Amino acid sequence: MISFQSKELLETSIQPFIIPSEKVAHVQMGNSLEHALLLLTKSGYSAIPVLDPRFHFHGLISSPLITDSILGLERIEFEKLDQKKVEDVMNRTVPTIKVNSQFQQALTLLIDHPFLCVVDDVNYFEGILTRRSILKELTKQLHTNKKQ
C-alpha cells in the first residue's frame, strides 16, 4: 500500500507544473479546418486548445473531429477543409482547471485526460497541465519518501 507522510503534495498548487500559454500550440475559432489539421499534424499533438482573439478558452480540436466532419458517404471531401471553421466542429465540453487549483484535483481530472487546459476566473487561457508533469512529480515524491 502506498501512503504519504503528509497531505502536503496533494494540497500543493498546480502552478509550478503548468506549461505557459506562450509555449502551447493552439488555433482560433475562425481558423479553417485545413489550418488546424496542418498544425495538429506538424506538432504531433492529439488535440489542441481553441481560443478566441482575446485568448479566452472555448474548447479543443483534434484530428478525429476534423476527419469525421469531412467524411462523405462515398469519399473524404477534402474541399470542406478550407470551407469549414474550427468553431463548427470543435469539442466545447472539456474539463478545465483553475490556475490556483490543488494537485489532488488535477490528479483526479487527469485520470481520463492527457492534459487539462488551465484558465483563470474569466476563462482566459493560461496554459496546459499535462498528465506527464503530474506523474513526474508524483514519481519524484514517491522516490523521496521511499528513501526516507
Rank of each mutant, 00 (worst) to 15 (best):
I2D: 00
S3V: 15
S3P: 04
L9F: 07
T12H: 07
S13E: 04
I14T: 08
Q15Y: 03
Q15E: 14
P16W: 05
F17A: 01
F17T: 00
I19P: 04
P20K: 08
P20Q: 05
A25M: 03
H26E: 00
Q28Y: 09
Q28T: 08
M29L: 10
S32M: 08
S32E: 02
H35L: 09
H35V: 12
L38F: 09
L39K: 15
K42I: 03
S43W: 00
G44N: 06
S46R: 11
I48N: 05
P49I: 07
V50P: 13
L51Q: 04
D52S: 01
P53F: 02
F55D: 08
H56I: 01
G59C: 09
G59L: 09
I61S: 11
I61C: 10
S62A: 10
S62Y: 13
P64C: 02
D68H: 15
S69W: 02
I70R: 03
G72T: 13
G72P: 15
R75Y: 06
L81S: 07
D82P: 00
V86L: 14
E87F: 10
R92G: 04
T93N: 14
V94Q: 14
V94E: 14
I97T: 08
K98A: 03
K98P: 05
V99E: 11
N100L: 09
S101Q: 04
Q104S: 01
Q104Y: 09
Q104A: 08
A106W: 11
L107V: 02
L109E: 15
L109A: 09
L109N: 10
I111G: 05
I111C: 09
D112L: 12
H113V: 07
F115Q: 05
L116D: 01
D120F: 01
Y124G: 06
F125K: 09
I128N: 12
I128Q: 07
I128S: 01
R131Y: 02
I134M: 11
L135V: 00
K140P: 01
Q141V: 02
H143M: 01
H143I: 08
H143E: 04
K146W: 15
K146Q: 14
Q148M: 10
